[in-house]
Nucleic acid binder design. Structure first.
Lengths: 133, 133
DNA sequence: TCTAAATAGGACTTGTTTAGTCCGCTTTCC
DNA sequence: GGAAAGCGGACTAAACAAGTCCTATTTAGA
């Protein structure tokens, strides 16, 4: 059908791990080891989650990550957006890229695909990481 | 979020065009011109749709394509599968590839993702190309 | 105040996938 | 026999995803 990026998979596993360890701070190294994800890659992922306010971090020795919100307020959609950026079923449905399709005028499927897009979004918007336990 | 491949987009546009032209036979050349899709690429797509029994074709002069079924019996899921093959949100959810994930044992998100996969499938399984008018 | 442990983040490499092209074959009608 | 159509393998190029490398910064504690 349609695939998660590896990074999103890793993000979900990491978030679940952090959630399960709450309220303790968890380090990237610990997650990488326990969940078996390349450390450098995971670091990037956690940093993105932090910059999108899904995680908060503490630097320095004894630093680490912790959820920025309760698990039932962290939505799948936000996680995906944080990691992969804005996406949609088609390029022309991505906010800000509407005009870039050279089929624009003749496009015969825009409106039904747009409707489908909304339905997919509804699915992802309602899932939180507390569903991932 | 998550994206259609260009080929699936083209398939949808082509199928809609063929559906609208029914019961006339339509050539790949005509679709390519009207819908503005590279001819060679479109040919491949139509051939796959044919081999998956979504279209029937007639060879030779005055040949062309026509839907193999009524539009409301041609499901989005089948179109996507015909073009892109078996896919799922994660590799390990694709039938026949279950064992290939090295996180298998430790994977903490398999069951919730599997549930989500079913929900996404439900969405795609119920859509037909008659919804694309 | 030095060091170790942690996050932060840019730059790069590698591998895979997608999109698209090229070319020759077969089928069928006139 | 030739033109118009589908059939289909092999290839190329560009884009993207995944992963690596390296260096800086922050902080706690000896």
């Amino acid at each position: 059908m349609i695939r998660f990026s590896k990074k999103v998979e890793y993000a979900l596993m990491a978030l679940k791990f952090i959630s399960a360890s709450s309220p303790r701070l968890v380090t990237a190294r610990e997650i990488a080891d326990k969940v078996n994800i390349p450390y450098d890659l995971l670091s990037k992922i956690l940093q993105r989650l932090k910059s999108e306010k899904i995680l908060t971090s503490t630097q320095g020795t004894h630093g680490g990550y912790i959820l920025a919100n309760s698990p039932d307020k962290i939505f799948l959609q936000d996680i995906m957006k944080a990691i992969d950026g804005d996406r949609a079923l088609t390029e022309c449905l991505v906010a800000g890229k509407e005009g870039e399709c050279n089929l624009e005028e003749s496009c015969s499927i825009k409106s039904p695909v747009s409707k489908l897009q909304k339905e997919v979004e509804d699915l992802f918007r309602t899932k939180t990481i507390s569903d991932f336990v």
